[in-house]
Amino acid sequence: MRISTAQMFNQNTTSISKGQSATNKILEQLASGKKINTAGDDPVAAIGVDTLRQKNALVDQYVKNVDYAQKHLGLSESKLGSTETLMGSMREQLQRAANGSLSQSERQMIADEMKDSLEELMSIANTKDESGNYIFAGNNTNNPPFAFDNNGEIVYSGDSGERQSIVASGVTVGTNVPGDTVFMNASNPLGDYGVNYLPSQQGDFTVDKAAIFDSAAHVEDTYTFKFVDNAGVLDLQIEDSGGAVISTVPNFDSSNPVSFNGIEVQLSGQPVAGDSFTMEPQETVSILDSFNEAITMLEDPSFADSPQGNSKLAQLLNDIDSGQNQVSAARSIAGNSLKSLESISTNHAEEKIVNDSALSMLEDLDYAAAITEFEKQQLALNAVSSVFGKVGSISLFDYI
């Protein structure tokens, strides 16, 4: 068989090119530390590597979302803890003011202390995060959620929005607690109606319950309760907002509940003839409004140790207790979410370890094997180059 010079040249150059290509591939692997640098290196393994990298990218995004949620919920939980402490102190101040032996100037001093505490409480309710967003404003994070209006009443300008963060596949966590949920919408301790005690009150009594027990028979209205003397016996007349008497309870006994229009009312203490109070629908109470009303009451000398003031004070203390429970519940929600995020974060870390281990098996280079292969390729390349050099230098004229 005769081999032409051109054929011999092509075969040798091809062998040298393949050897150089194999050597360069190993050099790339040694430089990167990866045995798969392109899909062509190992198409099947490359698909697995791409899938694992996508999973890790998704886990990394989840981890960022978890960090964001933890940061904001941690701030909320901390501020709610401060709120609980401050509210407890304010409640103690209000109870101290209930001492009938205090002078008006002493009550005013307590009112001034509570004013400072209320300002601090408002400051907490208007807390900003690191980006300048108000954390208790719902979705309306650009404006302070709580403020005093021109009448000195506290208004909420945020909303009930709860921002959600996706922290795992199919799992979302709220990253904020809306301010109305925390400070505004505590359950009315009386039930479904609020009570307004009047300055004409002389008896020592309070309303302990005003709740709807039969929604089908319930007629929503503002009702007036009047205690009248009927030949030496105390009767109770209940009037609607139009002044019509809708129910009369003869020989009133405060130990027995009063029922009318699907509503049940329970009193404690002893009213006297001439006493009256009004009652209107009210499902929730605000801890901020309760403290604000308490301060106003302490500053008004007419409330000092009066039957109306004592009844109003008892109601405010109950409202404050309900508000404290509401704040505690909101703090518990934030705390429980933080615990869940800790568990989710641990799961993500474990998943990342498993993915990284699988990636390492697929793409990490065995340096010892690669160096051995590199030396083999170098030896083969040198041998081919040497043979090509010697064969290429042979000439017929050397033998003539």
Rank of each mutant, 00 (worst) to 15 (best):
E375C: 02
T224G: 01
L190I: 00
L396Q: 00
H348P: 05
Q7M: 12
D356Q: 15
G335M: 09
Q378H: 05
K390R: 12
N382M: 02
S311G: 15
L118W: 13
E106T: 12
S32E: 12
T248L: 10
G243W: 09
N251E: 14
I154N: 06
V327H: 04
S103P: 04
V233E: 15
A186G: 04
D129R: 02
L234N: 07
D204L: 14
D204E: 14
M1L: 08
S131K: 13
S255R: 14
T5I: 03
I394N: 04
S4R: 03
S15T: 06
D149S: 05
M90P: 06
N140G: 03
P199R: 10
H348K: 14
N382K: 07
V285A: 05
S328A: 15
K79N: 09
D240A: 02
S200R: 14
S360A: 15
E293P: 00
K390A: 05
G274Q: 01
I344P: 03
N37W: 14
L359P: 00
Y399L: 01
K55V: 10
Q324N: 06
I16D: 01
V285N: 00
I135T: 07
T51M: 11
L379H: 15
V49W: 00
F136H: 04
D305P: 13
L338P: 06
S393Q: 13
V354M: 12
I36L: 10
A98M: 07
L73S: 06
P199Q: 04
M1A: 11
G48K: 08
G194E: 10
S328Q: 13
M184L: 04
I16K: 09
S215H: 12
T141Q: 13
P271K: 03
I333W: 02
T14A: 15
S328E: 11
A368I: 11
G19A: 10
A273R: 08
V155A: 08
D229P: 12
A217G: 11
G269D: 07
S357Q: 15
N37Y: 14
D229H: 10
Q270E: 02
E342W: 03
A97T: 04
L80T: 00
G170Y: 11
N99T: 05
L58D: 12
G194K: 04
L86H: 01
H72P: 01
S123M: 10
P145A: 06
Q70K: 13
Q237R: 12
I154C: 05
A147W: 00
Q108K: 09
I3R: 01
S254Q: 06
N325T: 11
F205N: 08
F183R: 09
S82C: 02
P178F: 05
A304V: 09
G152D: 06
E342Y: 03
F9W: 01
N139L: 07
N151E: 11
G269K: 13
R53Q: 10
D321I: 07
A168Y: 07
L313D: 06
S169Y: 06
